[in-house]
Write a protein that binds this DNA or RNA. Sequence first.
DNA 1: GAAGAAATTGCACACGGTAGCATTATCCCA
DNA 2: TGGGATAATGCTACCGTGTGCAATTTCTTC
Lengths: 341, 341
Amino acid sequence: MAKPPAPPPGPATVRTISRLAGVAASTVSRALKQDPRVAPETRRRIAELALQAGYTPNAFARTLSGGRSGLVGLIVGPLQNPFYAELLAEAVAQAAALDLRLLLVHAGAGPIEDRTSQALLQYQVDGCLIASAELSSRAAAVCAARGVPIVMVNRVARLHASAVACDNLGGGADLAAFLLAGRHKRFGLVLGTQGTSTSDDRERGFITALAGAGMQPVFSTAGNSTYEGGHAAAGRIAAMSRARRPDAVFAINDIMAMGLLDGLREAGLQVPQDISVVGFDDIPAAARACYGLTTVAQPMTMMLQRGLSLLTGRIASGNLPDETVILRGQLVVRGSARRPP
Amino acid sequence: MAKPPAPPPGPATVRTISRLAGVAASTVSRALKQDPRVAPETRRRIAELALQAGYTPNAFARTLSGGRSGLVGLIVGPLQNPFYAELLAEAVAQAAALDLRLLLVHAGAGPIEDRTSQALLQYQVDGCLIASAELSSRAAAVCAARGVPIVMVNRVARLHASAVACDNLGGGADLAAFLLAGRHKRFGLVLGTQGTSTSDDRERGFITALAGAGMQPVFSTAGNSTYEGGHAAAGRIAAMSRARRPDAVFAINDIMAMGLLDGLREAGLQVPQDISVVGFDDIPAAARACYGLTTVAQPMTMMLQRGLSLLTGRIASGNLPDETVILRGQLVVRGSARRPP
DNA sequence: GAAGAAATTGCACACGGTAGCATTATCCCA
DNA sequence: TGGGATAATGCTACCGTGTGCAATTTCTTC
């Protein structure tokens, strides 16, 4: 017998297949990539053998040789906020459809450890998706230094990076306009994480629109971007005398608005009869009957679609200029704020 | 001049450093790994040059050579359920501390596409963490075929795999005992995803404990493991005549219990005066004043700690026997169920 | 001072896949 | 039937790191 094609142990590689088929390894590689230079019959035979042997290409070897890993680094904010949970779920679904793998590098409010951002480089991510209100500057700097494209989602870019965000200014203004139309007179704010573009823009849009009507907020307090923060803010608001108390409060995001709403009710105030509450994000819980939050819906699907497309574009051709995409959110009117007459 | 150490373009590699230091690449490799066979002085010099050149080891090359990727595949259930969001956040934190990277392969209730499970092999994950009530059998089979260790979290193993789970039987029994002590007479159940060990065990533990007191549930309905499912179940329960209606309902998980509770209140029932509600998981929202859910807390931190340790153990030595760890949950008494007198 | 031991370091190859170039087989047409 | 074009495939080197073994240097010790 000439060559008993003894299949070596371990998972099948191109070499395994090449021995089985009696061809060179490079032919196998080409055949599996539908290279037209390989004869159709050979291609077919190799495809069959590969299937039969349970061949799976080794992404590591391919990356080493080809330079592209197919990996995208992902950094998200605290998953306790359903907004981020939803964003993450959407990112996973869309990335899979694009045949990109997600390396989940960081999730949470805390700062990113150096060791963590190192991982982005060690694993040769092709790009990085940052969806966290916080700056993550360490990771961003690391990527920028290596020319790894970055796309921020839900934040505008402060540094060398592209970004997709909701029109936070416009959304804040829409909410202000809605409350003004509802004849509210005294406006309060529950702020999120100070210094983030998302939080600041919503606040600014809101205040600017109020100013357009000759008004300004009478009260402003920190909410820490958490349910608990919103709940605590409710305590402070409920403690105010009726005369000083705002009659409408804009919580910079829905999770705080939920805490705020629950807190106000616990303190005996009726929403929206005694006080109106509006939020921002339109997380699923905002639609629940017990909240019925008037808010601004972020176009989540579209945001990630555009975000990933910006990213893949920059991965494909390294020298595209930075780009920022602003998508308009949509005002969703529910029962948590008094409506215009 | 002898050798102008011209640093080649692109990121620094061991070869870059080796040229700068005038040693062989293998020496650099060893020096950076603190191999005692390299002279201390040489080691120090190389470390300095590496730092200065911004050297980062290439995980892909290292994997190709060494066989271990440092990657763990992660599959989680639907992140709309805060339990999974919390679990994911904990997994990210703990994995980072263990210097493992997470390849987020799938998140959600849907089935896992073939292409997705292929990714587990292509990227040579060292192990796989499956935290989803659903079976994910495709991914599990793929891993098993390649000898990739699997650890299930929040599920007991139906197939070749290790597992860490809460004592769902015991937890269900604890809740039954608590309700019995509260002199409840008519018990209802809102079920989760049928056929999952998590859901089935909780139900079974509950029913068995009731049987021990000579009782049995009078009502049982599907809740689909979602808030909406629990909410819909509330509608069905509220529609029952007072005589037929259960006076205590166990929702298999907290997210359903929340929907149930809101739905019952909307229908005008008072909790716990008219009807008691208990859940399972102790997600953060269960502690909120507006819910105050009596539930069983899963030892999340410990579950992941043990889960990852099972996984790293099996990665380190391939032939450890499968192991299942059951951790006791803790009954958390709040206001959503009438207390024992 | 030389033999042997110990400490350092270099060489070569392997990991799995890809791509450039060389080589061989095949075909067309004069 | 021969020459050239074209199709099909093989050979080889490389990506960056890790490791076994050989080679070199240095140190011991009689």
